[in-house]
Simulated scan of single mutants.
Amino acid sequence: MKVHSKQLFYSILFLLIAARIQADEFLYKQMSISEGFPPYIQHIYTEENGFVWISSKQGLGKFNGYELKSYFHDNKNPYSLPGNEIYQIEEDSLHTLWILTNNGTVHYQPDTDRFIPVLDENGKALKATALCKLPGKILLTGQDKLYQYTYNEKQVKTLLQIKTPSPFLICKMVPWDTHTLLCISQWQGITLVDTRNGERRPSPLPNEREITHVLIDHDENIWATSYNRGITCFDRQGNIHATYNTENRKLSHNVILCLSEHKGKIWAGTDGGGINIIHPQTDSVTILKHLPGDKNSLPINSIQCLFQRDGQEDTWAGSVKGGLINIRHSIVRSYSDVPLGYTNGCDMKSHR
């Protein structure tokens, strides 16, 4: 009888350990304001070599894993940033880093640690607000114009004028099909632009003027957000596949500040509700959230931007008032710092 009881005990212990190991857990490392990081991080980009670039309205930063180097506009230095407000950071297929600022576009030259101005066909500084990578070329937009840069010519040329009755400030461009871009404006919603003639036409998504963020995933599903309305998933024809909000108890917050896709899951940074990870296959949501008193939880609940590079495990999050956060998947968690009797710290998962 004692032998059977001992075997039962070890069997139960093994099952508990196995369940603990399989539980979703994340490790967080915060690089805060006290370490020189800006409080509001608007953009993040990680290079293949591991450097992490971040931006705020006060300039640009390069993080090597140990220290942050900051870059600002300097009137006396022609190879400094042309402007301190960063619109986009992107690496092309030849591993050239493009930085779009409020006063011009530059290439970063790592050997000299300089920023080289990008000029148009007339020799003038290119002022672009968004960049989109396509096979063999890059498309940029600014002042209702579409520009093209080909890897063969290595020269920016004006492609066409976007036909619009009023200015439409594009902050993001996403390929829609072989000759159409889905263009997103921060305050004017979305529109489709034909890259052959510059014609604008409505997208199939309803209430397109109210849309604030759009993500097209690897399965061609369209994830869209509107202010304080959560997230809606559409097909290419504009039919709703799923909705996620606080009303149906799927999200922790309805104000979505950013969207990204990683390993088939949709990550959403919220304005006070942490990070919501949508699992489309099961229609479930994992919530990463700061829990007071639990230092193992997400350090801060307002997430402005997210970045994950294909083939890498790390997620980088830019917070509101909390600097930069590195997130890694883990199967180990320590409870040594959880206050006695504090039940939040003993949950294996910080999600619903």
Score class of each variant (00 low, 15 high):
P175D: 04
K265P: 03
F26P: 09
E313G: 05
L324Q: 08
Q148N: 11
K2E: 15
K29H: 15
V156Q: 13
S34P: 04
E121A: 13
F63N: 07
K2C: 09
R309Q: 12
W316D: 00
T286G: 09
Y28K: 01
K265L: 06
H329I: 13
Y335K: 14
T232K: 06
R249K: 15
K62E: 15
Y10I: 10
F234L: 04
C132Y: 04
A224F: 00
L131D: 01
T178L: 15
Y147D: 07
Q186M: 08
I54Y: 06
C305Q: 02
I86A: 03
G293L: 04
G264V: 05
I17H: 00
P110N: 02
I211G: 02
W176E: 00
H107T: 09
S93L: 09
W223I: 03
K163V: 07
G189N: 02
E261N: 07
I327F: 04
G272M: 01
L182I: 03
H179I: 13
R229Y: 09
P78D: 04
E85W: 06
K250M: 13
R200G: 07
K6M: 12
V118H: 05
H73M: 07
F9I: 06
D177A: 01
D337R: 07
L139Y: 15
K295C: 05
A128F: 04
K321W: 11
D294V: 10
Q30C: 08
G198A: 03
L8H: 12
Q188H: 09
I116L: 07
K295S: 06
L139T: 08
I54P: 05
Q237L: 13
R209Q: 10
A268F: 00
F9W: 05
G50S: 08
S11P: 09
K263L: 06
S226F: 02
Q30Y: 00
I44Y: 05
V193C: 02
Q7D: 11
E261D: 04
E90Y: 11
L126Q: 03
Q109T: 08
S70P: 02
I12C: 13
T96F: 14
H213Y: 07
A224T: 03
A23K: 03
V3D: 13
D194I: 00
S185C: 01
T225N: 03
A128R: 09
N197C: 03
G61I: 14
N228E: 12
N102F: 03
S70D: 04
L306I: 07
